[in-house]
Design a protein around this nucleic acid. Structure first.
Lengths: 147, 147
DNA sequence: GTGCGTGCAAAGGATTTGCATATAC
DNA sequence: GTATATGCAAATCCTTTGCACGCAC
């Protein structure tokens, strides 16, 4: 379990930025989200919890969270950017439905091993990777076929 | 060299859609582009060539080109969708050096097969994928180690 | 002739920004 | 006290859409 609030605090101090109530609430809010989320998800969740933090503040905090690797961009769906909380040692890849935006996370050791093999072949040292499989979930594919 | 105009024509006829001047101009325009482009790039290029086709038509033609696999989404940068012309049998993935930016293109059939297997497992129909391996090329890695 | 496609301008919608005020330090 | 952050509403900007007209078939 990582302490995102602490991480943010340290990074803000280094940058000479302020540790405000809004920022603390936002980082606290997202650290409880396990799925993917967008700016409005944060805004709504805060509002539901009685915290009246403006959309502007949410949007202005997101770049800070990105920079400090507390969240990362997961996908963009219908012009809306989706994020996920960064968890150390929990890498996974994504399957994305192009129609409904559904996202499935997976991890495949065989693929990871092959990636290593490929990089060795090209004399590269692999440090990270990003694999996105795009297509249609069974529901959407059926819809598509009916047309 | 593929004949995109012909491909579009055939597909439009199958769908009972019309082969209009605008659509012909647009497909002709993009078939000469080798880099990535967005909707406005098409609009501007057409305008420069004296073809006054509205932005609306460009935007309305893009989904048709996507559907017919004449173009595909390449990336989204600053809320602007970038496309590239689809070239048959030219799929590849990328290895990218984080230090010098060197890019190596590769293709690995085993990984592609595994992707299919994974999608089947999750009841997804795979239509496209994107795999980026990031790390350091041997030269840069040595530099890094010397530090 | 009919229905699909086009152009125009207006609408949409996520995100950004200017400005006055509030707050962390 | 001062610089940075916030909230609000307005602005931005890519993209979509309604509508009247035009064109492919």
């Amino acid at each position: 379990m990582e302490n995102y609030a602490e991480k943010l605090k340290n990074n803000l101090q280094i940058d000479g930025k302020k540790i405000t109530k809004s920022r603390k609430e936002i980082v606290n809010c997202i650290s409880n989200i396990t799925e993917h989320f967008d700016a409005d998800d944060i805004y709504d969740k805060l509002k539901k919890d009685g915290k009246n933090i403006s959309r502007a503040s949410v949007y202005r905090t997101i770049p800070i969270l990105l920079k400090n690797k507390i969240i990362k961009e997961a996908s963009i769906y219908k012009r809306r950017t989706k994020y996920e909380v960064v968890k150390e040692n929990e890498h996974h890849d994504h399957i994305i439905c192009k129609m409904c935006g559904k996202i499935i996370e997976f991890k495949n050791d065989e693929i990871e091993k092959l990636q290593e093999t490929i990089c060795k072949k090209y004399d590269f040292v692999l440090t990270e990777h990003n694999l996105e499989l795009k297509g249609y979930c069974s529901k959407c594919y059926k819809k598509l076929m009916r047309k």
